[in-house]
Amino acid sequence: MAVIQVVRSEWTKIRSVASTLWTLSLAVVVTIALSMLISALSKNEFDKMSAKDRLSFDPTFTSFAGMSLGQLAMIVFGVLVVSNEYSTGMIRTSLAAVPQRGTLLYSKIAVASGLALAVGMITSFFAFFLGQSMLGSHRASIGDPHVLRAVIGGGLYMTLIAVFSMGVATMLRSSMLSLGILMPFFFLISNILGNVDATKKIGQFLPDQAGSKIMQVVTPTDHDTPYGPWGGLAIMALWGLAALAGGYALLKKRDA
Rank of each mutant, 00 (worst) to 15 (best):
V6T: 12
R15N: 03
V17E: 15
A18Y: 12
A18Q: 14
T20Y: 05
T20D: 06
T20Q: 13
V28S: 02
I32S: 04
A40N: 07
K43I: 06
N44F: 10
E45W: 01
E45L: 03
K48A: 13
S50P: 03
L55Y: 10
L55N: 13
L55D: 13
S56Y: 06
F57I: 14
P59L: 06
P59D: 07
P59V: 07
T60W: 06
S63T: 15
F64I: 02
G66V: 11
M67W: 10
L69W: 14
G70V: 10
Q71I: 11
L72R: 13
I75F: 10
F77G: 08
L80T: 06
L80P: 04
V81Q: 03
S83P: 00
G89H: 06
R92F: 09
R92A: 14
S94C: 04
A96D: 07
A97E: 09
Q100L: 14
G102Q: 08
G102V: 07
T103D: 15
L104H: 06
K108N: 10
I109S: 11
A112E: 10
L115M: 13
A116W: 11
A118R: 09
I122A: 13
F125I: 11
A127W: 15
A127Q: 14
G136T: 07
G136W: 09
A140K: 01
V147F: 05
Y157F: 15
Y157C: 04
L160A: 00
G167F: 01
L172Q: 00
S174T: 09
L177W: 07
M183N: 07
F186T: 09
S190V: 00
G194Y: 02
G194L: 00
N195L: 03
V196H: 00
D197R: 09
D197T: 10
D197G: 12
K201W: 14
K201T: 13
I202V: 09
Q204M: 13
D208N: 15
Q209L: 05
K213E: 12
K213T: 12
T225Y: 10
Y227D: 03
G231H: 00
G232N: 00
G232L: 00
L233A: 09
A237R: 01
G240P: 02
L241A: 08
A242N: 03
L244R: 07
Y248R: 08
A256F: 05
